[in-house]
Design a protein around this nucleic acid. Structure first.
Lengths: 356, 356
DNA sequence: AAATGGTTGGCAAGCGATTGCCAAAATTTG
DNA sequence: CAAATTTTGGCAATCGCTTGCCAACCATTT
């Protein structure tokens, strides 16, 4: 391979063979250039590159060689225009700032890349309106959407869902393929854990009122704790940020509960700080359980007991489900619902109930 | 506005006026549909929408109204194909997993969205090869690139840089517009801080050998500490992950230094954990200074003294510089270099040198 | 009233692929 | 060896939008 050097550094607009043969010196080579050099029609090049079986092996190999030589990269724009596909998937998250979504972003990113798709990242700023707007505006630029913790109403979701391929994460609703993280089932573990430590007065610290997960967690908390005859409290709603932790901690402390199950780790970590400031010891005076097991939950002070979720994996599964929807090649109706298992990870923020 | 209801929920393929007037019931409306309904040529619609001054105000208003009514969204593909622009910018980061890049992602995301651009996120997995590959493959799908902590060599960078618009973050090199975070200058503060606490044996804990920032930090550390007559050590390289913290902590402890300045917070946080496990108290036995002030640096245990960087802002500035490069409208040669100021944030991981 | 020059809007040629349709070539079959 | 298939590859229409060029129109100016 005499062109190894060029291949090595990847950029080779100046490849002598290329410029000689293809004519145009500067401009990025098009399918036409490849066709010309290879001595075939553009349609053949197109097929050779994206539908290999439609073309003779030897022709294909020659074309591939020429393409590589010219450093040809098909224009995704042109390809999209004529094929109707974009090979891009948009990921809509309420807040790029939140570590929980980082893990989702990471998961989808990996899986999409593996499948040859591009990820379009959009921050919807916790607003249903922006979500709808993005969905609308990007209709043509993405083949499908992944909505993480969508703020849409069921009706809106249903409407969007039959207009375009999408899958939601942590937002179930009939008709829309979804991956949910099964926090509720781990709620049982969390309550058992607290009960075994002697706690009976427990407070749920609520997240955003528009959050579906928050509603689910609260409901599950309530059902399970009632079954166990515990005394429950609820405070909130609070924004899912560490800075809301102070207010949350104060409110929770006032209830007289000895343990809190907090909507998410971010808020829980914020509470940890405030409680320390106020001299309320964790876990001696108050136990704290978070949700999600985000980055940081293991090294905060004290390390947080939390309901651990396979967040990144949820992102990956969402992508798989979406891709299955986009390319219904191999039979077998793809899943409409994936439930990701969770489990309680006990660290140092929970301990025996104060005996006082 | 009789269509308020439809506008409200954004999706209105079934708008009666729309389907009547434009004919096609289902298919997304094209510029042609708009032109037809408005009674003008497609070229006029195109101009009205993207070059408002080229068209009479009243015509434009009518067109805008029709477009809104039909819920017309131009196809970015088609637009890109004919105009040559994509309205997308690719952000290449070595590792989406690393919180440092989260902040950059966040910054670029915000700024790009504000400017009407889409962000294409790519994880290059710390590999120069993948970086080059992405740069190559996405040539046509992005108007420009932002390289965060590029792993390219100067030569590669230069070559890419004159092929396509790009700006680097934390990777200076002539010819390429760059935003650098001025950690070195804060290195002085860090050393003064440690000196004032009585430390004189200081260890630099190194990051990835291919990292430009790492080289800069090390050099600055060495220069400044020599000037101050301190005894220095160096350990590494280590991968910039908390999991490398154990090895880093062990290596650093073995040097006999009483304080460490660590390549980044991630590694520093990892070290904190290991030191605690080993019973080496921070800061009583060993002081630790990190770099970046990432999410988590303020709530780890103990909270980390670190060289704080305006990371998110760096992302925003990078976008501005890139956009200035893409649209050299208003005169005034745009900056080729932006230096983001840093400062030392003292928390609890540094303290007086052990008197032993 | 004719000349001038600035606006406004239409025509049509691309942009770079994909793909349905068809004919030539190669292969199999009777 | 001819007929029937199957492969292979080219033609040309399209996708939806932008933009250079030009003609019609309008309001001034002389």
């Amino acid at each position: 391979m005499p062109r190894a050097a060029n291949q090595d550094h990847g950029i080779s607009a100046s490849d002598p063979a290329a410029s000689t043969a293809a004519g145009a010196a500067d401009r990025a080579p098009t399918i036409k250039d490849v066709a010309e050099v290879a001595g075939v029609a553009t349609s053949t090049v197109s097929r050779a590159l994206s539908n290999p079986d439609r073309v003779n092996r030897r022709t294909r190999e020659r074309i591939e060689q020429v393409a590589a030589q010219l450093n040809y990269v098909p224009s995704s724009q042109a390809r999209g225009l004529s094929s109707g596909r974009t090979n891009a998937v948009a990921l809509l998250v309420p807040d790029v700032t939140n570590p929980f979504y980082f893990d989702i972003i990471r998961g989808t990113q990996n899986q999409l890349k593996a499948a040859g798709y591009t990820q379009l990242l959009v921050d919807t700023e916790e607003s249903a309106e922006m979500e709808l707007d993005a969905l609308q505006k990007m209709r043509r630029s993405a083949d499908g959407f992944i909505l993480a913790a969508s703020r849409l109403t069921d009706a809106q979701l249903a409407e969007v869902s039959d207009t375009q391929p999408l899958v939601t994460i942590n937002r179930a609703s009939s008709n829309t393929p979804t991956v949910v993280i099964d926090t509720p089932s781990a709620m049982i573990q969390a309550l058992e854990h607290l009960a075994s430590l002697g706690h009976s007065r427990i407070c749920y610290v609520g997240g955003p009122p528009t959050s579906w997960s928050n509603a689910k967690r609260w409901k599950s908390f309530e059902d399970e704790s009632r079954d166990r005859g515990m005394t429950t409290f609820r405070v909130g709603p609070f924004a899912p940020k560490t800075t809301s932790g102070a207010a949350a901690a104060d409110a929770a402390a006032r209830t007289g509960a000895t343990a809190c199950i907090v909507f998410n780790d971010l808020l829980a970590i914020g509470m940890l700080q405030r409680l320390r400031e106020r001299g309320i010891r964790v876990p001696e005076d108050m136990s704290i359980v978070g949700c999600d097991d985000i980055f940081g939950a293991d090294f905060c002070n004290p390390p947080l007991t939390t309901i651990a979720s396979p967040i990144e994996q949820a992102g990956r599964v969402a992508v798989s489900m979406l891709l299955a929807q986009l390319n219904p090649l191999q039979g077998g109706s793809s899943r409409r619902l994936a439930v990701m298992p969770t489990h309680l990870t006990v660290r140092a923020s929970t301990g025996p109930a104060p005996t006082a």
